[in-house]
Design a protein around this nucleic acid. Structure first.
Lengths: 220, 220
DNA sequence: CGAAAGGTTGAAAAGCGTCAAGTTGCGTGG
DNA sequence: CCACGCAACTTGACGCTTTTCAACCTTTCG
């Protein structure tokens, strides 16, 4: 981050709460006029885009505390959909920009958040540019395991709020490859499938190793 | 961009000019304390990072008008190196932040630039997540061809200021694969090799097609 | 209860990485 | 100015991973 993340979120005070009680709701779509910025209070959201050929790519999963809805030339560049019940804070852009003109600290706060998003995007470039399928999957699992909302540290149960297609479209692989990578981890006793969306992590240190190991490109 | 890109660059007035006359110079390195932000006046720069296993990934090529050197928790997250003779504007961060506190417009200008960087990073995620080798190469060639500094529209000569390893590390492929992709384009009469770093583009419309075509993932 | 969506597995084929060899180009020093 | 040596580039062969195609199973929901 550019500066210390700093004091308590100014966002909550100046925004409108919005809630969606189900998964799969489209908050906004690629190409729409961008009127609002959103901050997540609770739940999770997927940010995605379709390529010209129709291929779907998930750019990021947004978690509590994250901000999304940045305009690109006045419109949204991506689509945002809920992947669980979600509580959001919503704020009109014109309103925010007005406030930022009077409050440089608020604007700096936004700048830091966008810069952080950029750094996350760069880590994704690293992943897609050189990690193997196993590494990518390990990264995703650990990412979700970092959020108590989805991971129970005590019994190791990880609840993935997404389908295999989501996993695949996030990791840049086919859904069959995603399934096989999970099978491989299961064979290696790193995890155990409870049901398709629930995974018990048996060896989290082993997962962290799997994320790092591999001297070369393009191996299993 | 968040708002209209707006008026003339305020950067040049408040910054120090710096020049490097050769390629391969390290402007700053990953992990160093981040003291300066840079804007490119002339020339080009590569932004790169090494993964834990030593694999090199080029995150972006920066061109005239671009800004780089954003700190991540006070240090640079990436390395920046010249890939041609370069003229830069350099500005200490503490200085810039001070100014931004007094000048919300300046800060908004920076915000828009960082947001633009984020959008570029997202396009790279799309590329690495789903484009084929040919598509990636076409994208890179068209990217450089968009800059008169490297592309002569009249005779179609494109001067790539980078090696094949750079091409490969940018596209997320092996250098042999990069060479073969160029060979393929040459066979298809889309381009012609003059020398390793000079390519004559014979069919730029065909290149743009090559960038888009392909209904599926992972084909040649 | 049946259809659809989501998930897993197998088999075959395609694409890419790796290894290896050979070529080209360029800078340094004689 | 030429020769040498090294780095960069290209191409072929091979093996491995992933994609694709297809079948089958499970779960969900109308």
């Amino acid at each position: 981050m550019l500066l210390s993340p700093g004091e308590r979120d100014p966002w909550q005070e100046i925004s409108t709460p919005v809630a969606y009680d189900h998964s799969g709701f489209e908050i906004f779509a690629e190409g729409e006029d961008a009127h609002f910025v959103y901050a997540i209070d609770e739940g999770a959201v997927r940010i995605l885009r379709y390529a010209d050929n129709g291929q779907r790519q998930i750019l990021a999963f947004m978690m509590p505390g994250d901000l999304f809805g940045l305009p690109d030339n006045g419109t949204y560049a991506n689509t945002a959909e809920t992947i669980s019940a979600v509580r959001l804070y919503r704020l009109p852009w014109h309103n925010l920009i007005q406030r930022m003109m009077d409050d440089p600290q608020l604007q700096l706060n936004l700048l830091v958040r966008v810069a952080d998003d950029l750094h996350r995007a760069q880590r994704r470039i690293m992943m897609l540019g050189q990690q193997s399928t196993s590494q990518r999957l390990a990264t995703l699992l650990l990412e979700f395991a970092g959020h108590p909302e989805f991971y129970n540290d005590r019994d190791g149960h990880l609840h993935l709020p997404i389908t295999r297609v989501d996993v695949a479209d996030y990791l840049g692989i086919a859904r069959e490859t995603a399934a096989r990578a999970i099978t491989r981890f299961e064979r290696e006793r790193l995890l155990r499938r409870i049901d398709p969306k629930t995974i018990q992590i048996l060896d989290i240190a082993g997962l962290r190793d799997a994320e790092l190991v591999r001297p070369k490109r393009g191996n299993q």
